[in-house]
Amino acid sequence: MIYRLLTGDDNSAFCHKVSQALSNGWSLHGAPSYAFDAGHGVMRCAQAVTKEIDIPYSPEMKLGDQ
């Protein structure tokens, strides 16, 4: 199993990033997190996702390509 933490501003681009991961076989892992970035005046989001893969994990693999 591999793990990714998707992050970004709280906007439609972040939702599309999570939706793209889900459409590529990733599964949500836990609830999303939100925090206010006072320095930039925006909300930031994070969502963990996991995926079962058939090859051994390697630190060199690009997780988004799995």
Rank of each mutant, 00 (worst) to 15 (best):
L22T: 06
G30W: 09
A38V: 11
A35F: 03
C15T: 08
Y34H: 11
V49H: 03
D54I: 04
S58H: 13
P56H: 06
Y57N: 03
H40I: 12
K62G: 00
W26H: 07
R4I: 15
Y3E: 08
L22A: 10
L22W: 02
S19T: 15
G41F: 09
G30K: 11
A46I: 01
C15F: 09
N24L: 11
W26V: 13
Y3M: 06
I55A: 11
A31N: 15
D37P: 04
R44I: 06
C45Y: 08
F36W: 15
A46P: 01
I2M: 15
T7P: 01
M61Y: 03
L6Q: 04
Q20N: 14
R4V: 14
T50W: 04
L5R: 13
M1L: 11
H16E: 08
G41H: 09
L22Q: 04
A48L: 06
S27G: 04
A21E: 01
L63Q: 02
S33P: 00
G41P: 07
G25Y: 06
R44V: 04
G8L: 06
K62H: 09
N24R: 14
W26Y: 09
C45L: 11
W26I: 13
D9G: 06
A31F: 07
Y3P: 01
G41L: 03
K17T: 12
P56S: 12
S12G: 01
A31D: 13
L28N: 05
A38S: 14
